[in-house]
Design a protein around this nucleic acid. Structure first.
Length: 445
RNA sequence: GUGGUUGUAGCUCAGUUGGUUAGAGCACCUGGUUGUGGUCCAGGGGGUCGUGGGUUCGAGUCCCAUCUUCCACCCCA
């Protein structure tokens, strides 16, 4: 059998894992800095927990898990031709792999409400799965790094999340990122003022494609969905707004005004904090159906797809039986950030150094002699290893070279007798003999 | 899910209108150098041509199916 892994999944080489950890560690340290605490949830949830939260398209992209045992036992085989695949799925699969971290989080909050202190600020870094067709920077298994505050309606949370985004990408060295912000209530106000509230979700998905298919494409799509001419004209005018001031009063819509007011406050506070990366974007809409307030999306110039996104959701916990709990959060797409950073060579070069010094192996006696030295070096927090076999020097040096080990220490019979060692700097090729006792001092220079 | 695309050595790829024993570079192993990598020289190992069917005297090459890759759509981190 030829070894292989399922479509859209990946194995990672040590060098890749080191780089991935660099991203995870950076993100996590910023999350902690703002007072968020970690949680984890299982990779699988009850199917009904997930279905209906992501829109019709979303349901199809959920990976279902076949029931254990005879999974056909609950199926009426005679009626098989008449039932829909959704109905069949729910009778043979009671569990599914999580599609994102937000819905499981809402479930978690409701389930553990008595053990949590609100407002609850958590972060969660775990993989999610989508039965999508893979493409560049689109995988079937990928990591999301979520930060959310639940149980607080304050827009200070939005400001905090945007600060987090700004800090994470700055620390990672991604320079040209842009944080777009919009508000579901602004969009709802627009629909209301144009009397097309019944076409709200069609309007949202069409508007979201503005950057991709342009004015004409969006117009066509709206027309095909049955939006009347005045409505399309109004949406077009709206889409071209570059600031909140361009929106006017949105036809006296109370809801629209609320949205504008909130975004305006957020932007002015960010301005005072010196954060210039966040801008109002009228065409930012977001397809996920659970957003009700602010929506946020981060893109980088020349990189297709968002690298971080989120928003406010007012009713997610309500579905699980806990009313009036508003939450807001964003999710960093670690795998896309990796691809972006790889493309632009943004990983620090020392990210692939694991061992700082390797001791060459000259034989059993010499190797034993190295052991206390290794212990001493490691006690100083210096990563060190001893080549396990007394192989030829050529082989041992090739190994060190392949592993990007910067220093190789050699202790043969001569050095052993004098309590010395020969230290070679791999990059320059220079080497010199020093007292064993001076090794740590030498490596720390 | 829809449309297109890709698959030959560990990796990147050649391989003519179907024709005898499928090649190169890199990587790997051995030696030149019994205490020296990244350069150089010599030699060596490694391929059910993604998989399964079919057409043919003969298939890496043509046909069908399937899996995989990448791309567009849908949607999304």
């Amino acid at each position: 059998m030829k070894p292989s892994i399922p479509k859209g999944t990946r194995d990672f080489l040590p060098e890749q894992v080191v780089k991935r950890n660099y991203i995870f560690d950076t993100i996590e340290s910023v999350f902690k800095l703002f007072g968020y605490v970690p949680i984890e949830t299982p990779s699988m949830e009850s199917l009904e927990t997930l279905t209906g939260k992501y829109g019709d398209e979303g349901d199809m992209l959920i990976f279902k898990i076949l029931n254990s045992g005879d999974y056909l036992s609950g199926v009426n085989k005679d009626g098989l031709s008449e039932i829909s695949s959704t109905e069949l799925a729910s009778s043979i699969a009671g569990k599914a792999l999580r599609y994102d971290l937000t819905v499981p989080f809402a479930r978690y909050v409701v389930q553990h409400q008595n053990d949590l202190t609100f407002p609850f600020k958590r972060y969660q870094i775990q993989p999610v799965w989508r039965a999508d067709r893979p493409q560049k920077s689109r995988y079937r298994e990928f990591y999301q790094c979520d930060v959310d505050v639940i149980g607080s309606k304050s827009f200070l949370n939005e400001i905090e999340l945007i600060q987090i985004i700004d800090q994470v990408f700055s620390e990672l060295g991604v320079k040209d990122f842009k944080i777009g912000i919009n508000h579901r209530k602004i969009l709802a106000g627009l629909a209301e003022s144009l009397s097309i509230s019944d076409k709200f979700s069609d309007m949202v998905t069409a508007l979201d494609k503005w950057d991709k298919i342009g004015e004409e494409g969006v117009g066509k799509e709206l027309d095909s969905k049955g939006v009347h001419r005045d409505g399309i004209a109004g949406i077009m005018k709206f889409a071209k707004a570059t600031s909140l001031a361009d929106l006017g009063d949105l036809g006296q819509s109370e809801e629209g005004k609320q949205g504008i007011n909130e975004v305006s406050k957020i932007l002015s506070k960010l301005d005072k904090l010196g954060i210039k990366s966040c801008l109002f974007n009228a065409t930012l809409a977001r397809g996920l159906s659970y957003y009700t307030g602010t929506i946020i999306e981060v893109v980088a110039d020349g990189f297709s797809g968002s690298i971080c996104a989120g928003g406010r959701y007012d009713d997610l916990t309500g579905i699980f039986g806990m009313k009036d709990v508003s939450g807001v959060g964003v999710s960093f797409g670690a795998d896309r950030i990796y691809d972006l950073m790889e493309e632009r060579n943004l990983f620090p070069s020392d990210a692939n150094v694991s061992t700082e010094v390797m001791f060459a192996n000259f034989g059993e006696e010499e190797a034993s002699f190295c052991l206390p030295l290794l212990k001493e070096v490691r006690a100083e927090g210096i990563n060190a290893e001893l080549y396990p076999d007394s192989a030829k020097m050529k082989k041992q040096f090739s190994y060190a070279d392949a592993k990007h080990v910067p220093y190789v220490a050699m202790i043969g019979a001569d050095e052993m007798a004098k309590n010395e060692l020969t230290l070679k700097t791999m990059e320059t090729g220079e080497q010199r003999t020093i007292k064993s006792a001076d090794l740590v001092k030498e490596l720390k220079r």
